[in-house]
Design a protein around this nucleic acid. Sequence first.
DNA 1: CGGTAAATCAGAACAAAGTTCCTTATTCAA
DNA 2: TTGAATAAGGAACTTTGTTCTGATTTACCG
Lengths: 153, 153
Amino acid sequence: MSVRIDELDRKILGCLQVDASRSLDEIATEVGSSKTPVWNRIRKMREAGIITSQTVTLDAEALGFDACFYVLIRTSEHEQDWQKRFLEALNARPEVQEAHRLAGDIDYILKVRVPNARAYDAFYQALISEVKIHNVTALLSMEEIKSTTALPL
Amino acid sequence: MSVRIDELDRKILGCLQVDASRSLDEIATEVGSSKTPVWNRIRKMREAGIITSQTVTLDAEALGFDACFYVLIRTSEHEQDWQKRFLEALNARPEVQEAHRLAGDIDYILKVRVPNARAYDAFYQALISEVKIHNVTALLSMEEIKSTTALPL
DNA sequence: CGGTAAATCAGAACAAAGTTCCTTATTCAA
DNA sequence: TTGAATAAGGAACTTTGTTCTGATTTACCG
């Protein structure tokens, strides 16, 4: 069953999305409440799975991940077994940051972050050796214009 | 100037990527160190910009964002002015979670999260009314197979 | 439109974690 | 090998997270 989210919850989530390291007192002041209700609401939203996790975002380039590719994948295989193996392959590879199954012409899109083009090729070769893929198009990112995980609440 | 990252820093970042809400003591134990050095290293990596921010990840569907599109954009305009206005339009729209400038045939890719298809159309109409765009292809996600911001350190 | 029960809130008390300080160990260069 | 600079470990201190209680509000039903 789902938890009803009210205006105060939304404000709290908004705060946390911007900076999850702020203290409860600060958040309470900003949303016009006090410590206890803010804490209780955060706890409930955690338990309800609305707040999935708490992480740090790292500067990919500062850590040597200079290349980012979006990979468009077409496949001729549509059986359960193939899909299962494809999924496992994606989950096993940490360079895959996103994977979506699509509607329409293109079957899957991946976002892949690697140190350089050579590392992408290694990834690509490994992937196609594991599962049969009909057609692949790689889109190379030149510039990350915008990047956020924040939802517009 | 960049900060040298050693094996211990990498372990700490690995911990924080998984769960940034854990206590310093827990992290220190896991990486085989103690509170103080862990705290100092985190502070330094913050100051150096390696750790960009600390946020919560929310369940988009639980919050009513049921639709996700990848949008491939071709433009015939390549002047500074056009690019500036396009960039401003993207930054002004919170439904755009990612935007990359690409090499090759397709000029830009966007990741757009909205409550439903109608909301996407509203976004699309608003965007093309603001800036001239030659060609747009929208890829509709049926299923989010994988989603992480963690880098493989 | 009351009156009661349930839920929520504000503030205080307590526990736990973050932050600082100081001493000891380690590293690196002369 | 010796000295200076740097980092680590542990204890003191401060801030924050967490729990508890009483008061208030909200919601529901007669």
